[in-house]
Amino acid sequence: MITLTVNGTRRSFDGDPTMPLLWFLRDELALTGTKYGCGLALCGACTVHVDGQSARACQRQMQTLEGATVTTIEGLHPRGEHPVQVAWREIDVPQCGYCQPGQIMQAAWLLTQKPTPTDEDIDTAMNGHLCRCGTYPRIRAAIKAAEGQR
């Protein structure tokens, strides 16, 4: 039995210990804001925070998460008004929107590490996040706008 905290709620899991956190969130907890995109940490769509660090949920097996604290897009802010989310709306970043929860979780983590990120910081932090619609210029602008709001 694995016990962990997801968005402030204690959860337990006694299934396949090799199951990635991604499928636990989506299939067991119905937290579908965390998206499946590649399963190999190539696209960033499944990004969540584990113990305050940005993590690819497709790569974190449940057996590594005993006692962990996980935050998903649904838990980033109680009213969805994290500065990154606010900036994303102000700049109207999404097109299809599918990759955006992962982008937002990564951007929110980046700002905890680098409160005023440079373009190079943004490239480094966001390069693992694919957006096939091509919203990258607006993502960059929104990160800078969110920085200003903090």
Binding site: R26, A30, L31, T32, G33, T34, K35, Y36, T72, I73, E74, G80, Q85, W88, R89, D92, V93, P94, G97, Y98, Q100, P101, I104
Partner: peptide, 21 residues
């Protein structure tokens, strides 16, 4: 005009094909 699905898309509640349960 601000896009109408912005709220759900930025808070994880927008529903795509695989999100139907």
């Amino acid at each position: 005009m601000t896009s109408i699905d912005l709220g759900p898309m930025t808070s994880g509640t927008a529903r795509y094909g695989a999100d139907v349960i």
